[in-house]
Design a protein around this nucleic acid. Structure first.
Length: 225
DNA sequence: CTCTGATCATTA
DNA sequence: TAATGATCAGAG
C-alpha cells in the first residue's frame, strides 16, 4: 500500500528512521511485493521501493521527490564500514545551451539543497533481500561542501558552455563529475561544439564522487556518544 | 524522447 | 580494485 506524502519534515524523518535495521526483503514483503533476483536488470528498484514506502510523489519529474518539503530522496549502497560502493547520480547536464548559467539557478544546486540519504548496507555477495537499511541522514551542504560543489560545477559548466565536448570526461571535478547517462552509446543528443556547430554526443549527467558522499553519511556510521 | 531510479562491467 | 564509461527499466 502506498503511503500518503509526509505532511512535514518530522513525519518524513520518523518514517525513514522506522525503516533502519530492516532488510529490503522485509520492506518488500510489507508492500506486498518481492525482491528481484538481482539488480542487473532492475538497477533503480531499491530507489523506487523506498520512494513508494516513504510516500515520495515526484515520479520521474525533474523536481524534488517531496516537492512540498523541498527534499530529495537518495538511496546509497555502502559497505560494512559505511563507504559508498557507487557514485551518486544527481541530474542530467543539458548540452544544448539550455543549462542555467548561474550556480544558484542550476539543477545541481537545487537538487542538492536538501537530501534525505538512506544508506543500504551490502557487499558484492549480499543477496538483495538481505541488504539492510541503515539510519537515514537529512543533509544540507555545509558551507565548505557548497563551495566545493559550486567550484566544480562552474568548471564543468565552462566545458559545456564552451562546447568542449571532446574534453568532457569523468576525470574532471573533485567532488562532482560528468559521466555518460543514456540507454547506451547509441543514445545521442544534440550539443553545441567549440565552433558553434550542432553535433551529436552521448547524454551526460552530473554525479557525486564516493569520497564526497562518504563524508555526508559518515556520521551515521560512527559510534554515538 | 527525456528524466527518473541507479548499478554494471571493462579498463587503467 | 577503484574509477570511468556503459547500460537497464519505468514514468510522464
Amino acid at each position: 500500500m502506498e503511503q500518503l506524502p509526509p505532511q512535514n519534515e518530522t513525519v518524513l524523518i520518523r518514517r525513514a528512521f522506522g525503516l533502519s535495521g530492516k532488510t529490503l526483503g522485509e520492506i518488500a514483503a510489507n508492500q506486498g511485493t518481492h525482491c528481484p533476483p538481482d539488480l542487473k536488470r532492475h538497477k533503480g528498484w531499491v530507489g523506487q521501493l523506498l520512494e513508494w514506502v516513504l510516500g515520495a510523489s515526484a515520479g520521474s519529474k525533474a523536481e524534488p521527490d517531496f516537492p512540498h518539503l523541498g527534499i530529495e530522496l537518495k538511496t546509497i549502497p555502502v559497505d560494512g564500514s559505511g563507504k559508498p560502493r557507487e557514485s551518486t547520480y544527481v541530474c542530467v547536464a543539458p548540452l544544448d545551451g539550455s543549462m542555467a548559467t548561474q550556480w544558484h539557478e542550476s539543477w545541481v544546486c537545487r537538487k542538492l539543497s536538501k537530501v534525505l540519504w538512506i544508506p543500504i548496507v551490502s557487499d558484492a555477495n549480499t543477496p538483495l533481500s538481505e541488504r539492510r537499511i541503515a539510519p537515514p541522514k537529512l543533509w544540507t551542504p555545509t558551507p565548505k561542501q557548497a563551495h566545493q560543489l559550486q567550484t566544480d560545477w562552474e568548471g564543468l559548466f565552462e566545458l559545456i558552455a564552451s562546447g568542449s565536448i571532446w574534453q568532457m570526461d569523468a576525470f574532471k571535478g573533485d567532488v562532482l563529475q560528468l559521466r555518460p547517462k543514456g540507454a547506451n552509446k547509441n543514445d545521442l543528443v544534440w550539443a553545441i561544439d567549440e565552433e558553434g556547430n550542432w553535433v551529436q554526443t552521448v547524454p551526460r549527467g552530473f554525479y557525486l564522487r564516493p569520497s564526497f558522499t562518504r563524508e555526508i553519511i559518515a556520521s551515521q556510521f560512527t559510534d554515538p556518544p
